[in-house]
């Protein structure tokens, strides 16, 4: 059996990749994918702990996260399409009308 720290390190690396991608990428689709990466990093730590402690609640949480992520993907992609139609760009640095 693979010991817990391996999972946690992988989970942390996935999460860090997501954060870094979120921060440095300009393309909104990529940012969106980075968010998914962060969610899955967290999911991995959940199932890892669930397997470690033989508790089912961790796995239940993962299902919840996946459902929410799916809903979020549907809404988020719709927003992205709407943004693209009006602004004709996917570069978030150019979607900045809300500043002072």
């Amino acid at each position: 059996m693979v010991p817990l720290p391996y999972y946690l390190v992988l989970s942390g690396m996935l999460f860090a990749c997501g954060v870094v991608g979120f921060l440095i990428k300009r393309n909104i689709i990529t940012i969106f994918m980075s968010i998914e990466l962060m969610l899955n990093g967290v999911n991995l730590s959940f199932v890892a702990f669930a397997a470690q402690w033989h508790a089912l609640s961790g796995q239940v949480f993962v299902f919840f996260v996946m459902v929410v992520a799916a809903a979020e993907a549907a809404v988020g992609l719709a927003i992205i399409i709407a943004v693209y139609r009006t602004r004709e760009t996917l570069n978030v640095d150019q979607v900045n009308l809300l500043k002072l």
Binding site: V92, D93, L100
Partner: peptide, 16 residues
Amino acid sequence: RHMQSGNLRSYAGWVA
């Protein structure tokens, strides 16, 4: 108020 730049990635940076 300069924190509120309208730049999405800077918001993300503040959150992070």
